[in-house]
Nucleic acid binder design. Sequence first.
DNA 1: AGATAAATACTCCTTTGGGGGTAACCCCAA
DNA 2: TTGGGGTTACCCCCAAAGGAGTATTTATCT
Lengths: 217, 217
Amino acid sequence: MSEQKSSVMLIDDHPLLRKGLKQLLALEDDLEVIAEASSGAEAIPLATELDPDLIILDLNMQGMDGIATLKKLRDEGVTSRIVMLTVSDADEDVVNAISNGADGYLLKDSDPEILLEHIKRALSGKMVLSEAVTQVLATALRRPTVKTPAELNSLTNREHEILSFIAKGLSNKLIARELNISDGTVKVHVKHLLKKLGLRSRVEAAVWMVNQQGGKV
Amino acid sequence: MSEQKSSVMLIDDHPLLRKGLKQLLALEDDLEVIAEASSGAEAIPLATELDPDLIILDLNMQGMDGIATLKKLRDEGVTSRIVMLTVSDADEDVVNAISNGADGYLLKDSDPEILLEHIKRALSGKMVLSEAVTQVLATALRRPTVKTPAELNSLTNREHEILSFIAKGLSNKLIARELNISDGTVKVHVKHLLKKLGLRSRVEAAVWMVNQQGGKV
DNA sequence: AGATAAATACTCCTTTGGGGGTAACCCCAA
DNA sequence: TTGGGGTTACCCCCAAAGGAGTATTTATCT
């Protein structure tokens, strides 16, 4: 292995926290913070360009949140180790984070030494989870993501209707024919409903919907 | 809380291992092994009667295996903390264990001190996972283990694997990244699998698959 | 040794999907 | 009456998906 420093990038919209984190990381000779960003939008071009060894990513950010940023980063082909950092100790996003390619999920209120320890472990290629997070993960496994249909209520009738067609596997064109509207309009509805549900594609929407209604069409 | 000793029960079909474990636990003043069993069948009546604070349960046993024993115990209303113990460090049963009510999943080849530490943490109500297990758990979230019902048998392993990714909503590109193959290759597999299943799109495939396995990860 | 199947990775091509925007129309509430 | 949400419909643009073909390598089964 090399004796080179490991490059670290911080993404967090709280300057103070970045400062603190930077100080913490400065305790280690072999870590170097090479970039900081205060938003996902700002971070993505930086990350793709610099390709740091490790990215520490705040989960709770204004605008594009941590998960969205994570998705986008992986989507752009960023292969850095990415560790999510969050305040909440009962955050169910852990499942989302891990399944979207995060290499760790740490809590901001962890003991600094432990945090540093975890960060170093993450750099060495390991998956790191804060203690409290392990609970959440286990709980998530026991209660397999029964999502709140609250999100369904945010959809308009038309959007809901179109979602259910998507969940049957229909293409936009077929849905349009079914509803006697143009396929362009269907695309508009699909676009809106994906945005509202925070999903990336009709496939995700279909799976999500099928799980909502307990499957079996 | 009380100053009483915590009662522990050992279930393992290797007498030698039970002996070793007992010695290890004897190092702690506040732990007391109140029962041992060499099989699940033997263990269940004992456990229901004694209701120990903690049960240490071997995963790999002859006859009724660890998971089956675990299920049966919970089924009988045993509320003890239950920690699974296993030899294999790449054991995918971790998901099964946790989702069936295990409070921990430890490896026999862990450092004894760490093992003891974990056991005590489990007794204090926490979920404990050996380090290597955390990896497996995370991986399980990314790569769903897929069942093989009748119609799925016509698919090759790779096709099957890719179908399960589709059912999670992943794009070809992301699947390719996950499997370390080119996205062109993924498209080939998708094409083949659609043809074999008589489906017209990945959305249909996703819905079909989710219905097959009853949804969820 | 030869055949076969699976997995890999290309090519070329067309259709589909999804994000951005603008804009009309209706209807209902502030 | 003005405003906003919902539905409709279009624009542009580009990425993703999927069909068809060829080809190499590895493994397995005669």
